[in-house]
Computed example of a mutant assay.
Amino acid sequence: MVVPDVLAFVSLEFIGGALQIGVISLGLGLLASLVLVPFLLNGRLRSLFATVGPTDHWMGNYPIVMTIVGGGEIALFALTVELIAIEYANPATVEQLILSASVAILLGCILVLSLLPLVVFPRLGIDWDKNGYDARTVGLVCGAVLWYHAGTILLSPYTFDWIPSPLL
């Protein structure tokens, strides 16, 4: 299938709505990044953000990386919810599928965000922890990821009211 054939199935309203979700999700991702600020008091996480990102300093990289991470998760969740709501008419089925998808997305994001700095980056030669990835580093990264997701879950009832429904 070529790109024009795929785009023929997608309406302009869907594309506009998806772009709108993307922009709003990035804004919400920046807001959600504030949840993790207390963990930046530890030099290990500052070292991670100093190493990973387009700028040379952790203060520049942190908002960029966390906005993309948070915005991507929010957009993924919002589009998943919309696609489930379109596909199924039974409200009980929709609710069950949204709950299952939410848990799967949450667990997947927690797993990926924990494994990236602790396993993948060192294997790629990105050495950000001068302490050798000891138990304190593992606990700090896993605690920060869980804290971040707990905070975003608590914020989600308020933030999803801002996201439009492009598909319905």
Rank of each mutant, 00 (worst) to 15 (best):
V37G: 05
P38G: 10
P38I: 13
F39R: 11
L40T: 15
G43M: 04
R44K: 12
R44T: 12
R44W: 01
L45H: 05
L45T: 14
S47H: 06
L48F: 05
A50E: 03
V52W: 04
P54W: 13
D56L: 00
H57V: 00
W58K: 09
P63E: 15
M66H: 10
I68C: 03
V69I: 14
G70L: 01
G70Q: 11
G70N: 10
G71C: 08
E73W: 05
I74K: 15
A75P: 03
F77I: 01
A78C: 00
L79D: 08
L79V: 06
T80Q: 08
T80P: 01
V81E: 15
L83Q: 10
I84T: 12
A85S: 08
A85M: 06
I86S: 00
A89H: 13
P91Y: 08
V94L: 03
Q96S: 08
I98N: 12
I98M: 08
S100F: 13
A101L: 00
S102T: 13
V103N: 10
V103T: 15
A104T: 09
A104I: 07
L106E: 11
L106I: 14
L106A: 08
L106Q: 11
L106D: 09
L106C: 04
L106P: 01
C109N: 12
L111G: 07
L111D: 15
L111C: 07
L113Q: 15
S114K: 13
S114W: 09
L118W: 09
L118P: 04
V119L: 09
V119Y: 13
L124Q: 10
I126C: 03
D127L: 01
W128Q: 09
D129Y: 03
N131V: 06
N131C: 00
N131E: 04
N131W: 09
D134P: 01
V138A: 12
V138M: 11
G139I: 05
G139P: 05
V141Q: 10
V145L: 09
Y148D: 08
G151D: 14
T152K: 12
I153Q: 09
I153G: 04
S156P: 00
S156G: 02
P157T: 11
D161K: 00
